[in-house]
């Protein structure tokens, strides 16, 4: 499959993401400039982390009017895959491709640390190689990662299994599960511990944690090191899903 990674002015994880897709996952990856309206036939567009347009006005608010966003909206409308990481998630919410919004962290701090995430749902293009209940360790680094949406939207996403990952304790538990303890595992005050959500069309996914920073074995360190490669599961799931679709399509055409 073919990946595209968008660069806005102020994006800073575009190269890390392209490196992981190209050299760790081993797949064709092209850079996409924000002023271009041509997605070059990619199967999945990745909106990377960073501070597009300096986070002016609101995070992602200016980037969503870049020429490439029109092409991405059309790509998404025709079923193409879109993954937004951190600032990319903020851009997708601002563009209305995902519900809700991301506001200033509850504790007013820029949070830069590993978090643990629980995989909530696996019947989708983005987490299909995980098991429901898997706990991943992936870093976050953001000042505006507190997800908000009205209760009806959150209920609907829960019913439709569109909250794909939530912040949790290292053992996978959450306050809501047992009603006990503090929610200090939630790094930003996100509603219902949401870390990442998918659209109703089930082809656009945004999350605050950075899978590309938990992927390259070269930076995982020696045996016993703390780093994790759990982020690879997301990229592998997408690749697996695209390959499966392609096989199904070619099997269908041979019939």
């Amino acid at each position: 499959m073919k990946w595209g990674v968008v660069t806005f002015p102020g994006s800073n994880d575009d190269r890390d993401t392209a490196h992981v897709l190209r050299n760790v996952l081993g797949q064709e990856t092209v850079p996409l400039w924000h002023k271009s309206a041509d997605l070059e036939g990619v199967d999945c567009v990745v909106l990377p982390g960073g501070f597009s347009y300096g986070d002016y006005l609101r995070c992602g608010a200016i980037a969503r009017f870049s020429p490439i966003m029109g092409a991405i909206a059309r790509h998404a409308a025709s079923g193409g895959l879109v993954l937004g990481i951190c600032n990319g998630f903020q851009v997708l919410c601002e563009a209305g491709l995902l519900p809700g919004a991301l506001v200033r962290n509850r504790d007013l701090r820029f949070v830069c640390r590993d978090v643990t995430l629980r995989v909530e749902s696996i019947s989708n293009p983005f987490t299909n190689l995980a098991f429901a209940g898997d706990v991943w360790r992936i870093p976050v680094k953001h000042g505006e990662g507190c997800y908000v949406a009205d209760p009806a939207t959150l209920d609907e996403m829960e019913r439709e299994a569109r909250i794909l990952v939530r912040y949790c304790r290292p053992d996978g538990s959450r306050v809501r599960d047992d009603g006990a303890g503090r929610s200090d595992y939630n790094p930003n005050g996100s509603a219902r511990d949401v870390a990442g959500v998918m659209n109703a069309g089930r082809n656009v996914f945004g999350l605050m944690p950075h899978p590309e920073h938990a992927a390259d074995p070269a930076i995982l360190g020696a045996e016993g090191a703390r780093r994790s490669a759990d982020g690879m599961r997301i990229f592998q799931s997408i690749a697996h899903w695209v390959d499966q679709r392609r096989e199904q399509a070619s099997a269908g055409s041979m019939r």
């Binding site: 506001v103 962290n105 504790d107 908000v148």
Partner: peptide
Amino acid sequence: MPKRGVLDPQ
């Protein structure tokens, strides 16, 4: 202004 009910930590 932030909507009523939206967290305003600042």
